[in-house]
Design a protein around this nucleic acid. Structure first.
Lengths: 143, 143
DNA sequence: AGTTAGTCAACAATACTTGTTAGTTGACAG
DNA sequence: CTGTCAACTAACAAGTATTGTTGACTAACT
């Protein structure tokens, strides 16, 4: 996503008001690569704005998604996570702690046209599952 | 997953009773590659056993999952889907009709150890998104 | 300074899934 | 063949995540 200042400008250009709540969410997301849930963002915004409602946070997140500024990430049964990184990248999900990491895989992926005629691939998503370094260390130490 | 008869035997060996409800779910899943939801399976079992409860279907599906006979597939915001195909394979999700197809991708995927030290990859999942042949045809005809 | 979008609070509602209870049935072992 | 206990049903509650709604209030922009 764009920097908070640029988002401010974009919202204004679109005729949307730049409220402290919206700016709070911009700030909370900016540079975050931890794929926070709506609740997590809410918690962060509340630190400086204790009265903000979860409803509003959801609102803003959906607005940003509609504008293409952020992506939603749904992996497993957990709640939706929000990803301000909209460049092409892959994900690693830790099966232990459920954290999601941005990764760049070396991948050559192809859906063979010959066997799947008529399928129009718009996006390819790679998800790795396993243990993150922290959890791998702990599980190794358990021996 | 195994054939219904083999599952029957496995359940019996494990001391689990082979009830008509369980067999109904075995049958409903056998050879199904449409990634049905719990409700869909329920509907199918009810055709021959109208009194079966959704609760029981969930129960049996979870049992089968625990036994590793089937996989759960969570893609997007739809309810959990169940996949009797537990061989390594990939998925194609139609963004229009939400159907899920089993596919075998040509893929060479690698998480570069060098950049991600300590990450232990247990599984790699590839998901294609786009239009399935049916929906591609309809959207093309709309022009 | 006025208009109106945005927000809040509080609550309802949705969808999916699991928990719980109590009463009944029927699969299997002996 | 029969007793036992796992399994099933029905009916309901609960839980999680998310969105809808309403009415009153606030404050951002023109």
């Amino acid at each position: 996503m764009r920097a908070p200042e640029e988002l401010t400008e974009r919202f204004r250009n679109l005729g949307l008001k730049v409220t402290p709540q919206r700016q709070g969410v911009f700030q909370a997301l900016w540079g975050d690569d931890s794929h926070p849930t709506a609740e997590a963002i809410w918690g962060r915004v509340r630190e400086t704005m204790p009265t903000v409602s979860l409803r509003t946070v959801y609102q803003v997140l959906n607005d940003l998604t509609d504008l293409g500024e952020i992506n939603t990430v749904r992996l497993g049964s957990s709640p939706v996570r929000f990803d301000p990184n909209i460049d092409g990248h892959d994900h690693f999900v830790c099966e232990q702690c459920s954290r999601v990491f941005d990764v760049h895989a070396h991948a050559v992926v192809d859906l063979p046209e010959k066997h799947y005629p008529g399928f129009e691939v718009a996006a390819t998503q790679i998800v790795f599952r396993g243990f993150c370094p922290d959890c791998a260390r702990i599980s190794a130490a358990a021996h």
